[in-house]
Design a protein around this nucleic acid. Structure first.
Lengths: 195, 195
DNA sequence: AGCGTTTTATAATGACCGTTACGAATTAAA
DNA sequence: TTTAATTCGTAACGGTCATTATAAAACGCT
């Protein structure tokens, strides 16, 4: 019983994700969010909670819908292919949508006021989780003799993530997909091998 | 004639730079700025102009005081040493001050509201200027047969800058200087040579 | 039709934003 | 010592921030 919702929650969340993706957590106002979603403020609150809760749900959606290439990359047979898939996937994702270029995890909250510190930490931990998965994948590659015993797996993982973060910054600055792919290619130019 | 200023303008600008460095342009409020500088709002306005003008002067100061290693790096004899000096300099600069880690050029304004678009563009152009200098330096290296004729100088410059931007993101996330130096070392692992 | 429940849109809340009027205080010159 | 000029701190400006109180509208059920 009761009046039924007049808007699609998933659709509104997609629109909110786009706003956060483009302007970050603090840069996105409720005016932006209501305009992008077509949903009035109280309806957003009743559907998603407050701004931080909405952002968290947008992050979850970003992970499910946009970051699936990362898990697929980890499943590649060799460490070099893993890195190549991540880098090309990032180049593509960061330039796919002209109206919100760059990476949600980086644009979301890099620097800002103290009030958004918890959001910043959330994104930091989220990125750290991905980096840890990558390091574990490289350690497996070392066991499989895909990477040399001398390889520094945590340094390699941090390196690949650094390049992706840098590409995200460049994408936000308007760099083309072709340029980002050239960066990715250079980053892979001398991947360590066991031969 | 007239009352003389009671605070040191350069000292106040240094304090303001620290605030912008840590919180970015939009994240820094006048409450933060007055507290850090010990100068009341109207005095900041009369000395520096409005917030955007103050930010521009902070950027100039950052360039003069913190980015001098970049010019020094360009003067290195080989392209590899140029890149190595830039990467190690960035690792050091981004972790030198624990209270404002990362890079002012990245933290300053990555994503945010539309009102700070001009500040964002300023930082984008500033970074592009550095990248152009680096590309020209690599082109010189190619002429000097320090880099192979097959080298893609703009891709190399974009790559080095991407790594520095990524290191800045990681520094802001709390990564140690040692980790950043490991990233830098990995980024240099397979620099193109002419032999 | 009438009741309980949920969503709707309007409009208000207090707090903070960047910016600036204003008058008191301080200085150098007349 | 008066005068003109400059800076000082206080306190306010209009605007926007995230959040919510409120009441009308729309539903399922009896």
């Amino acid at each position: 019983m009761g009046r039924r919702r007049e808007f699609d929650v998933d659709q509104a969340l997609d629109a909110a994700l786009c706003v956060f993706w483009r302007k970050g957590y603090e840069g996105a106002s409720y005016n932006d969010l209501t305009q992008a979603t077509g949903v009035e403020r109280p309806a957003l609150y009743s559907a998603f909670g407050n701004k931080e809760a909405l952002f968290h749900q947008a992050l979850e959606r970003y992970y499910e819908q946009q970051l699936s290439f990362f898990s697929a990359a980890l499943a590649q047979p060799t460490s070099r292919e893993v890195a190549a898939h991540i880098l090309s996937g990032v180049a593509e994702l960061n330039t796919r949508h002209p109206e919100h270029s760059g990476c949600f995890l980086i644009n979301g909250a890099l620097a800002g006021s103290d009030e958004s510190e918890s959001v910043r930490q959330t994104l930091i931990e989220f990125r750290a989780k991905g980096e840890a998965q990558l390091r574990e994948r490289f350690e497996r590659a070392k066991e499989e003799e895909d990477l040399p015993q001398t390889a520094n797996c945590s340094a390699l993982a941090a390196y690949v993530m650094a390049v992706t973060h840098g590409m995200a910054v460049q994408a936000k600055a308007g760099f083309s997909r072709e340029t980002l792919e050239a960066v990715a290619a250079q980053a892979l130019a001398t991947w360590p091998t066991n031969t």
